[in-house]
């Protein structure tokens, strides 16, 4: 009985065998941004707890979030949110049974890689230009 479950089964080739495609990259990025956002909730908790704790704790958050590396993290954070959101929207389209033909897969893949970049850039340009995020 055990040999039935432990016998070596034929395996399909892994990703390095195939030509690199945009849809593959998006699939991996969707998972990667998801895991990154998971870790990023530590920052969200830190931000909220610091604001709830008091001015000194909040000053530490402000020091980090105003520094160039903090801004880089926030920029990446917002991009990860947008990218994961558009990846999710792509899955919603697929959930309805639409958009599986190669032409639409390619169109949707391009949109879901470009729009998050444009939105992230737009949001931060607006933040620096109009809202004084400096």
């Amino acid at each position: 009985m055990t040999d039935q479950t432990t016998r070596a089964r034929p395996l399909s080739p892994h990703i390095q065998i195939y030509r690199w495609t945009l849809t593959m990259m998006l699939s991996i990025l969707h998972r990667a941004t998801g895991v990154a956002l998971y870790a990023g909730t530590v920052l969200l908790a830190w931000w909220l707890l610091a604001a709830a704790t008091g001015p000194e704790a909040y000053a530490q958050v402000k020091t980090v979030s105003s520094a160039w590396y903090g801004r880089l993290v926030l920029f990446g954070y917002s991009w990860a949110l947008f990218h994961h959101m558009f990846g999710g929207l792509r899955h919603f389209i697929w959930d309805t049974g639409r958009g599986f033909d190669l032409k639409h897969v390619e169109i949707i893949a391009r949109l879901t890689s470009l729009l998050p970049l444009i939105l992230t850039a737009g949001v931060w340009v607006a933040a620096y230009a109009y809202l004084g995020a400096f």
Partner: peptide
């Protein structure tokens, strides 16, 4: 939760950007 996260996340991004430099 994915559906709920769309408006909620847009709110968070807006809040993060508007308050990136806010004081206490």
């Amino acid at each position: 939760t994915a559906l709920a996260n769309i408006p909620l996340t847009l709110f968070l991004v807006g809040a993060l950007v508007v308050h990136a430099g806010s004081d206490y």
